[in-house]
Design a protein around this nucleic acid. Structure first.
Lengths: 334, 334
DNA sequence: CTGAAAGCGCTTACAG
DNA sequence: CTGAAAGCGCTTACAG
């Protein structure tokens, strides 16, 4: 691959002159500029960004570290991040952790070594070690979706507690008393908050909280399936309603329900935090929906404001509202 | 952020000695090594990969340029790429083009400038310009999913023609004669090949090809919806079966069918190239399924074999078989 | 076993 | 308007 030196030689000028043409800086005579441009075209020259970044100490890249690229929730969030970033001429690197703290750790280290200008992190666990590692390098970081306890850091997340409260309240208003919660991993803030909202609604309605009805698994379909099967095997009579901690858990629950020959909502009611992926032919699930695009957009804006130095004050917390969408997956109980 | 020089100063050695400790090369006395390691820990030093890559002319990154990160087909393929890459200690950059040739062009240019070691490309159109641009920089490239005409380049793809032939044949065996094909963008190889397989099956069965039943749109849900609506409005009597060019088109078709109050398969039959995303509660769609994970894995292996210099012969073409999965979305017609 | 010099490809600041 | 020198952070030869 040709370098700036090759172009310079061919055009009969110094490398710095080529640099000036490429970046449109300083004064250049039209004649020289033309000679250089011809040489660039003839050699198919592309400037090496690595060396430029090394000089500038700036890569114009930010990273988004998410848990599961397979879930449209995260890809939509990614879209928000990309849109905010392209406005400021930043590129986004997407890293997929599979909710594994160890994979996450490796990625963050790699990103720091590659001089990423900032990191958007969806924490795979509850520890603050990673955030400290990033901050030690003086790299801006914003936590997304899952607040970390006891950390001074920007964070953007949805109102999980409030959303879970409203879903549970909705079920209670329909007459449900035996509601099983099938949540994600217990170490994750959103799991805890959704459980908190669930408990709060029960308590306020003077319904005793049956801890055996609260399950922590993982935010994916197999886990939802497994938890639902456990519920069906261990609770007699069956709970009248299931609360899915996220959309993929809901998919797993629906699969279990189908295999057990049950019908929704005749035999069992179900609600979910987050809408099912894709507009299926017949959307029927009652859900609390977040706005993943907005989460991504806002998080990226917070991050970019730090990177550009536009803001350098105290950590900010942005909590986005959620929306209850009542459809046909809950039956009224007498 | 501290540099190798800061560590060296603190440990009372030369930078090159620190380099030796980091990379475990050359001879180092235990005592020196310890001093250096202490300094590294105290300063939270992380080596700068940018400068290292500049030196080595190697970044250990490959890029995957896909059309729609929202479709699980591509995220699953990505998984295959990641698994093959991590075996060889390469990292993967994921770029999303939205099927837009212009976005694709920008990404590829950026990747080349960032000295990416190799590129996996899912072409957004039928032109060879991008491949030439990559090859001009002597960067290995593998085309994925959609062969390009008249180009000397490695390619990995599924047997689209054969798959489409089998799906169409299946419909014909069920007695269907009026089959509408709702394909992706006409410039894309897979669209053309699926149309070719469709035509071939009709011709072999001596069924006249009605060109007005062949639609080219785009591989997404809104396009599938729009094409299905057009079919329903323009063809009386309605075709007895619809052939969806991919899974997202199938989703759009199902949406249109639902809105028109039709039932599958009683009122209309439907088959799809590629399975629907996610195991829905009741998988009912008859499909031809590819193996996106294998596509990604094999493509990455071809690319890596070029990067490492393990292979540098003539371009290779890998065609993966597809599988017909008959379920309940087709009705037998007398 | 350890280090001074040179260079990867670019650009800033200084000369002319 | 154009260029020679120096440096971004690292590592490959070459000395000692």
């Amino acid at each position: 691959m040709p370098t700036i030196r090759d172009v310079a030689r061919r055009a009969g000028v110094a490398p710095i002159t080529v640099s000036r043409v490429i970046n449109n800086t300083g004064y250049i005579s039209d004649e020289t500029r033309q000679r250089v441009e011809v040489a660039i075209a003839e050699l198919h020259y592309l400037p090496n960004t690595l060396s430029r970044s090394l000089r500038f100490k700036k890569t114009n890249m930010i990273a988004l570290v998410v848990s599961d690229i397979t879930n449209p929730f995260w890809t939509t969030l990614t879209r928000g991040v990309e849109d905010a970033s392209s406005e400021e001429d930043f590129n986004v690197i997407l890293c997929n952790t599979d909710e594994k703290p160890e994979k996450q750790h490796n990625y963050v280290k790699l990103l720091l070594q590659r001089q990423t200008d900032g990191i958007l992190l969806v924490p795979a666990d509850n520890t603050t070690e990673l955030v400290e590692m990033i901050q030690n390098q003086n790299v801006p970081v914003v936590i997304v979706d899952r607040p970390l306890p006891n950390t001074q850091v920007d964070v953007v997340h949805s109102d999980s507690t409030g959303g879970a409260y409203r879903l549970t309240q909705h079920l209670i208003e329909q007459g449900h008393r035996q509601i099983a919660l099938l949540a994600g991993r217990q170490e994750i803030a959103t799991s805890q908050e959704r459980a908190a909202g669930y408990r709060q609604a029960l308590v306020e309605n003077k319904i005793p909280v049956d801890e055996s009805l609260i399950y922590f698994g993982s935010y994916n379909q197999p886990s939802g399936y497994a938890m639902a099967m456990t519920v069906f095997n261990h609770h007699h009579p069956r709970p009248t309603a299931l609360f899915a901690g996220n959309n993929f858990i809901a998919l797993g629950i629906l699969q279990a329900i189908y295999e057990c020959g049950l019908r929704v909502p005749e035999d069992i009611s179900i609600v979910s935090f987050d809408d099912l992926p894709y507009s299926l032919p017949q959307p029927f699930l009652t859900v609390v929906a977040q706005s993943p695009y907005q989460l991504g957009l806002q998080a990226a804006r917070l991050l970019l404001s730090r990177i550009t130095g536009y803001y350098n004050g105290a950590p900010r917390e942005v909590v986005l509202p959620v929306e209850l969408i009542v459809r046909d997956s809950c039956r009224k109980i007498e």
